[in-house]
């Protein structure tokens, strides 16, 4: 069972998945997110992958099934409720249960260790949070590389040691906003530009570590749904005000001097978010730079822009 997953909304509590990071995709769908496009390529071309699970949370993921339907592999799409919608928790709980049943039916397995998995995830996230809270004295690139490495493994092997290379803080403290950081060279580029990442709201990092632990007593599906929905809202959950409230609170607390907005080209939730985020950043007097990349193996003009940004702040 090797299910490729995309997005922090996918419940690892149910079954092992391989979190998608990078792939040299040949599928080039125009006006379409490169991350999703590379995801499609990997599912279609990589014979070691026998399934895919993904959200319905933006225009690109919404139509993933249309592109994947010919792959004859296990496919499951989660509808992600927008923030604060009535009945969202109950609805997501039903989806999680349906996912569990779909995995069991397709793979001919029985999943009866959800509580244990949830406990493990709670511990793992707690350990991650401790590391995250010291982010500004750590190597961000080392942190992101180890984090991505961990997420590709089966859950039982996802022990987080917190053993991250230390790095001297610089006065150029930045906050990173964005979707999944598929190419960790970008983290290296940020460091090479003498910037210190004080915090982020990436789905695999800042957003993950502040999710509430799963209660293992009671309705486990409802509790998992509650934990997932307790994460700081992604712009795909379309409450930009809530997203920005969280971000700017962190930005103020962490004494940030600049904001790096790092996204895929054709990622419409982040493009829309940026148009209001940049206004707030202006009001707060904090410079922000938007860097767009194409696909999972592209650093774009990041080096040029980040160096210049570091010189500016």
């Amino acid at each position: 069972m090797k299910i490729l997953s995309m997005s922090g909304f996918i419940p690892e509590h149910i079954s092992d998945t391989i979190r998608f990071t990078q792939y040299g995709g040949d599928r080039n769908i125009s006006n379409y997110c490169g991350y999703a496009s590379d995801f499609i390529s990997r599912v279609m071309a990589d014979d070691t992958i026998d399934g895919a699970v993904y959200p319905k949370s933006c225009d690109s993921t919404r139509i993933l099934t249309s592109y994947l339907s010919e792959c004859n592999k296990f496919l499951f799409q989660f509808g992600i409720p927008p923030y604060n919608v009535s009945g969202a928790k109950e609805h997501l709980a039903c989806e999680i249960k349906a996912y569990k049943e779909a995995v069991e039916a397709h793979y001919g397995v029985r999943i009866d260790d959800i509580k244990e998995r949830a406990e493990f995830i709670n511990k793992r996230n707690e350990a991650l949070r401790k590391t995250y809270e010291e982010l500004d004295s750590l190597s961000y690139s080392d942190y992101m590389e180890k984090l991505h490495e961990m997420l590709e493994k089966p859950l039982a092997m996802q022990e987080w040691s917190g053993d991250i290379r230390k790095r001297e803080k610089t006065g150029k403290r930045v906050y990173v906003v964005g979707s999944f950081l598929s190419d960790t060279r970008l983290a290296k580029i940020i460091e090479d530009a003498s910037l210190t990442v004080a915090g982020d709201d990436l789905p695999e990092s800042g957003r993950l570590v502040y999710s509430e632990p799963v209660e293992t007593e009671g309705d486990i599906y409802l509790n998992i749904a509650g934990s997932i929905l307790s994460m700081r809202p992604s712009p795909t959950q379309v409450s930009f005000k809530k997203t920005m409230d969280h971000d700017f609170e962190s930005i103020r607390k962490k004494d940030v001097r600049g904001i790096i907005f790092l996204t895929q080209k054709y990622c419409e939730p982040y493009d829309y978010l940026y148009s209001v985020f940049s206004k707030e950043a202006d009001k707060a007097g904090i410079p922000a730079v938007q860097i767009k990349v194409n696909g999972t193996e592209d650093t774009g003009k990041a080096a040029l822009a980040l160096e210049a940004f570091a010189d500016m702040i």
Partner: peptide, 8 residues
């Protein structure tokens, strides 16, 4: 003071 770079 500020800069803009065109997309790829």
């Amino acid at each position: 003071k500020d800069f803009f770079i065109n997309d790829k």
